[in-house]
């Protein structure tokens, strides 16, 4: 890890206010290709907002976000959607799987959103379910599987289109230790194999221990030592 490699994704001087509540005051962060970066901090510190900004889900009020040489903050909503569809993957704490689709269809969703044929999308999706050891729930609906299985399905969905960055917001937040560990192990192993970077928002140190590096957000402020260099 040396500071000379250009970061894949970098945000500087990010500021975001929801109504009268400042969520981000001055946040700086960078993500290098293939690394697992933990974003830590107490609840309400602005971790999730920082993740949303970086992923192009939320436009910051001020600051710059550069992904792979392109300025995210200057893109249109359509371009950012396309970017999220093709280059980013997402795992949230809960409520991300479409309850009426089967697990397999859920995993195939990003590919289909990007225009891939259903058959091919579901073939690839099945491969990922297998890698995350949840091939047996492929035809079940999210409501019929356990929390740990659901979260692994979500991880499969985040990886199915081979993104370069996976954003994980408290991916183990709703799981017990054992299932949490399992999801983290599979998530980091799969992303390392795929060479994808992970931005891992968590308040649990044990989960953060799966990262290569961490930055701390406190009261909407974060500094990334790597970027200062």
């Amino acid at each position: 890890m040396n500071g000379t490699t250009t970061p894949l994704l970098a945000g500087t001087g990010l500021r975001k206010t929801y109504g009268a509540t400042p969520a981000l005051v001055d946040a700086t962060i960078c993500v290098r290709a293939g690394e697992v970066l933990a974003v830590m901090g107490p609840s309400g510190s602005g971790k999730s907002t920082l993740l949303h900004c970086l992923a192009g889900i939320v436009a910051p009020d001020a600051g710059r976000i550069v992904y792979d040489g392109r300025e995210l903050t200057a893109m249109s909503d359509r371009e950012r959607s396309a970017l999220r569809r093709r280059e980013f993957g997402f795992v949230f704490q809960f409520g991300q799987l479409v309850p009426e689709l089967t697990c397999l269809e859920n995993v195939a969703l990003p590919l289909r959103l990007d225009g891939l044929k259903r058959r091919e999308a579901e073939r690839r999706a099945a491969g990922w379910l297998d890698r995350l050891e949840v091939a047996d729930v492929a035809d079940k609906r999210p409501g019929e599987v356990s929390g740990g299985q659901g979260q692994r399905v979500a991880v499969a969905r985040a990886l199915v289109h081979q993104p370069r960055v996976v954003f994980a917001d408290e991916p183990t937040g709703a799981l017990d230790s054992l299932n949490g560990e399992r999801v983290m192990r599979l998530l980091t192993r799969a992303t390392r194999e795929a060479g994808a970077a992970v931005v891992l928002v968590t308040h649990e140190t044990r989960v953060a221990a799966y990262s290569d590096r961490e930055i701390v957000v406190r009261d909407g402020t974060s500094h990334d030592a790597e970027l200062v260099a």
């Binding site: 949303h52 999220r84 969703l109």
Partner: peptide
């Protein structure tokens, strides 16, 4: 609403 927001995060377009 949460699910919809998650779908948009995944890159689903409004039109879809």
């Amino acid at each position: 609403r949460r699910l919809l927001a998650a779908l948009v995060a995944v890159g689903a377009q409004r039109a879809t």
